[in-house]
């Protein structure tokens, strides 16, 4: 994990290098899809400006702040806040860096701009899913607000082409594959009799393949919410947590995107992390499991499923019972991996 926060300058594309080498004497707004390297570039610009003047970095959630905490220590950066924390003091600084700016409203952006002389905003409008506080400001509007051109990071270095092909279809998003640079394994689709069997299969795969960087992403927080909104309490983080715990399977979970909850995740353990699609925003895992994909969700959840799928840097597993949700292509589709027969040598 430590490696993630250093920059492999030799592997940067021209555009990424341009941002790193760019002078820090004026504001900028950078957009890029999940995996384009926005957040790492944001941290490194912070490092550069930390030598030039006062600065503050704002991330959206407490989980994100914790996720970055090791990297921040390595880079020697101290002034990092999650939004609610920043609200309590609003320091006046020369440089303000904001990550995931698409999750803020126009008022919040305006408020942040008032506290920084030079502002760097990083975001991706297509990952805007935190609209429970009101309508959010697009990255383009933020650029207009500041009076700068929105500068895009084009390539995606996290998502593999194979996972992107599926994400494009599910999210009804264009040009995702074109931006991907890496190849990888095709997503796996797993059919089991029941939700419980799906969870058992997930545990089996994690154990047999010794997976140590796993996200298990669910649509709902609590059993009550899952029951009332989808008629199935098993579609919740709470149910998965209880199921695994009573089976003696060590997992960690986070209930909600509420920034001040105490359910902190330990990114030093190799326990699978169970959370909602929203909570997973900004995070990345080597392996992502999305169980209960037989459920038919309302259309506005499509983006959230897309964001959840794009959390993976390597392998994606879609499990279901009965019939696969209409969000996904049929299980026989060539987008999914097939099982190989192996002959003994």
């Amino acid at each position: 994990m430590e490696d993630e926060f250093f920059i492999d300058y030799g592997k940067l594309d021209q555009v990424q290098r341009h941002f790193i080498d760019k002078k820090t004497n004026k504001s900028m707004v950078v957009t890029g899809s999940a995996g384009s390297g926005k957040s790492v570039i944001a941290l490194h610009k912070a490092k550069q400006v930390s030598a030039l003047g006062s600065y503050a970095i704002i991330v959206y959630t407490k989980t994100l702040k914790k996720y970055f905490s090791d990297g921040l220590k390595k880079l020697g950066l101290a002034n990092v806040y999650y939004y609610n924390e920043w609200l309590k003091i609003k320091p006046q600084v020369k440089y303000l860096i904001v990550d995931e700016c698409q999750d803020f409203t126009a008022e919040q952006i305006s408020e942040m701009c008032n506290t920084g002389e030079i502002c760097f905003f990083f975001g991706d409008t297509e990952q805007s899913i935190m609209s429970f506080n009101g309508p959010l400001q697009t990255v383009q509007d933020t650029a207009n607000h500041i009076g700068v051109m929105m500068e895009p990071l084009y390539y995606n270095y996290r998502l593999t082409k194979e996972n992107a092909m599926l994400a494009e279809v599910v999210g009804k998003v264009e040009d995702v594959v074109e931006k991907c640079v890496r190849n990888g394994e095709k997503p796996q689709v797993i059919l089991k009799d029941s939700v419980d069997s799906q969870l058992d299969e997930i545990v089996k795969i994690i154990k047999n393949k010794s997976l140590s960087n796993v996200g298990i992403l669910m649509p709902f927080n609590t059993k009550k919410t899952a029951n009332s909104r989808a008629g199935n309490m098993k579609l919740s983080v709470e149910y998965v947590k209880e199921y695994f715990t009573q089976k003696g399977v060590a997992v960690e979970f986070k209930y909600s995107a509420n920034q001040d909850t105490e359910m902190d995740l330990d990114f030093h353990s190799s326990n699978p992390k169970v959370m909602t699609w929203w909570c997973a925003k900004g995070l990345q895992f080597k392996d992502v499991f999305i169980p209960c994909s037989e459920t038919t969700y309302e259309e506005q959840k499509r983006t959230a499923v897309y964001v959840a799928m794009t959390r993976t840097g390597e392998r994606l597993y879609i499990s279901y019972s009965g019939k696969l949700s209409s969000f996904f292509p049929e299980p026989t589709n060539g987008l999914y991996a097939s099982t190989d027969e192996i002959e003994m040598i």
């Binding site: 715990t245 009573q246 060590a250 997992v251 960690e252 979970f253 330990d266 353990s269 326990n271």
Partner: peptide, 25 residues
Amino acid sequence: QKKVYNIISSIINNKGESNERFNEE
């Protein structure tokens, strides 16, 4: 120690609530 670390991280994440299976392991 690594195995113990993982189990206890899970317990701590669950507000310190363990169960007999974890305790036995």
